[in-house]
Design a protein around this nucleic acid. Structure first.
Lengths: 141, 141
DNA sequence: GGTTGCCCTAAACTATAGTTTAGGGTTTAA
DNA sequence: TTAAACCCTAAACTATAGTTTAGGGCAACC
C-alpha cells in the first residue's frame, strides 16, 4: 500500500514546525496537498519531493512569493518548463552572488579575528583608541 | 586638515540609505559618532572603519542586536579583546555553516536545472505528473 | 535675505516570515 | 466511551529590519 504522512510527520522529516507548514499552505505553496473528509492534510510520497524542493529554495533564500510562482509553474505542467528553468537560473545567479558576498565579508571577519589573536593585540588597540581620541579632539567633537 | 563626512556621504560610501544609518544609530550601533552644535552627525575617518565592520557583520547575517554587542565591546576598550574574539569566532562558525547550507541546497537547484535542460525533460515531467495522478487516485485523494 | 538642499527627531508604517491563541472537530487506545 | 493526542481555521501577535511621514531647524549660494 502507498504510504501517506500526517502534517506532524512531514514537519519532523523536514525540521519545520507544523504551523510553518500550515502557513506555507495558506501562502499557496502547497496546492498539491490533498485533504481527507475531516479536513486533515494528507501528504503522499511525491508531495514530499515537492516539499523538499520548497525547503531547498527557502534554504537558498528564495522568498515565499517566488517559491509560490515556481510551484504554480510546476502545477501548470510540462508547458512551463522553460519558465521554470529561467526562474531557477535566475535564482542560481542570486545565490552565487550571495555566496560571493558571504565569502568576501567572512575574509574581513577573519582579519579581525587574527588581529585579536595577535600577541600585541592589546597595545595595537590601545594605540588605535588614542588615535581616535586625538582625532576627535582635533575636530572638537 | 582631517576630513569629516556627512551622513549623506557615508550612506553613499557604504551603499546604505540615510534612514538606515539613522536607524543603526538609534539601535545603538553608532555610539562613537559625534554631533555638531546643530545636532548633525559628523563622521570621522576612523568612524568609517567601524562602520565598515558593522556592514561586514551585517553582510554575513549578524543581527543588529549582536552587532550592537560587538560595538559595545569595542567601546569598552582593550579589556574586551577576548570577548570580541569569542563573539567573532562564534559568528564565523555560523557563517561557515550557512555557507555549507547554501552550497548543499544550490547543488539541488542545479540538479533541477539540469533536469529542465535535458532534451527529454518534457516526457519525463509528463510521466511524473501521471504518476502523481495515479497515486492520488489510488488513495482516493 | 530668501530659496534650495541638507540635516534632525519622533512616530507611524511596511514587508517578510513566521508563531500563538481561541475555539472546535477527529482518532485512537485503554 | 472517554481521555489523550491529533488535526483544523481564523485571527491576532511577534520579531526583524528597515522606510516613510510630519514638522522643523541649518547652510550655502545667488
Amino acid at each position: 500500500m502507498l504510504k501517506t504522512f500526517s502534517i506532524k510527520e512531514v514537519a519532523k522529516k523536514f525540521d519545520l514546525s507544523i504551523s510553518t507548514i500550515r502557513y506555507y499552505d495558506k501562502r499557496g505553496l502547497l496546492p498539491f496537498v490533498a485533504k481527507n473528509a475531516a479536513g486533515y492534510r494528507i501528504f503522499t510520497e511525491t508531495d514530499l519531493n515537492l516539499i523538499k524542493t520548497i525547503v531547498c529554495l527557502k534554504n537558498t533564500g528564495m522568498s515565499i512569493n517566488n517559491i509560490k510562482t515556481y510551484i504554480e509553474l510546476v502545477m501548470a505542467g510540462p508547458s512551463s518548463i522553460d519558465e521554470r528553468k529561467k526562474l531557477l537560473l535566475n535564482h542560481r545567479r542570486q545565490v552565487l552572488q550571495e555566496q560571493q558576498v558571504l565569502a568576501d565579508n567572512l575574509r574581513e571577519v577573519d582579519f579581525k579575528i587574527k588581529k585579536y589573536e595577535s600577541p600585541d593585540a592589546e597595545s595595537v588597540i590601545k594605540n588605535e583608541l588614542e588615535y581616535v581620541a586625538r582625532e576627535k579632539k582635533k575636530l572638537n567633537l
